[in-house]
């Protein structure tokens, strides 16, 4: 079977898998960003209890494997009465996992905003919330965008693991096609190339654009 024949026969399945992967990536990214922001801020809270809760979350999700987390959420949570649909379990596991890494970026970026900015905001008599929201976070955002670009690629790659709980994403489709056709190079190779294209020509350029856009907006370009 030529590669052309392979594509015409299985192209549709590969495309639908790609779509699932992209949707999963977007939803998981939204979850990861929100959780990273919340956990990152919590880790800087003056309240020790709040700090500890966030630290425990980060250590658990960074200290174990995504696959373990995914299986736990999918197979063990139902025993506690929380049965999640496999797609939901997938994006929650990926979002929570990457959110833990992201929270470290948020925390690091906030801490790296020059101390003088805090002092100037205090000298203007701004409240703690105002200082964070209006002065520190916008600057931290600019600092953390480049590492978030890398994290987004990691997130895209992480979504491949949901194939193991039978979410019909790109990896799952490649695996299915492989087991029915034994055309391993074609099925897995095509999937690898698609991931690469999405990462290199979709995610990376969008993150670069976002960096430039934010930098311009903040008058630093």
């Amino acid at each position: 079977m030529s590669y052309f024949e392979f594509i015409s026969q299985y192209g549709e399945r590969i495309l639908s898998g790609t779509l699932i992967t992209i949707i999963l990536t977007i939803i998981a990214a939204a979850l990861a960003v929100s959780i990273a922001l919340i956990a990152g801020l919590m880790r800087l809270s003056p309240n020790r209890f709040v700090r500890s809760v966030a630290a425990v979350y980060v250590e658990i999700f960074r200290g174990t494997s995504l696959l373990v987390q995914l299986y736990w959420i999918f197979f063990v949570l139902p025993l506690f009465g929380f049965t999640l649909e496999k797609f939901t379990a997938g994006f929650i596991a990926v979002g929570l996992n990457l959110g833990a890494y992201g929270s470290e970026l948020v925390r690091g970026a906030i801490l790296s905003v020059a101390r003088g900015q805090w002092e100037a905001a205090l000298a203007l008599n701004m409240s703690g919330v105002q200082r964070m929201r209006r002065i520190i976070l916008p600057q931290a955002l600019l600092i953390m965008l480049p590492p978030w670009g890398n994290l987004m690629i990691e997130l895209l790659k992480s979504t491949a693991l949901v194939a193991l709980i039978a979410v019909a994403d790109l990896t799952f489709q490649a695996k299915q096609i492989n087991s029915s056709t034994f055309l391993s190079a074609q099925s897995f190779g095509t999937a690898l190339i698609i991931y690469y294209v999405v990462a290199r020509f979709l995610i990376t350029p969008s993150m670069r654009w976002l960096e430039r856009f934010m930098a311009r907006k903040m008058g630093e370009a």
Partner: peptide, 22 residues
Amino acid sequence: IEFVRSTPLVLQVFFVFYVAPQ
């Protein structure tokens, strides 16, 4: 390097394991 870094490990594992016999 970019290629290896931007594609999922699980897929690379499948690729190596199943393609080599071909």
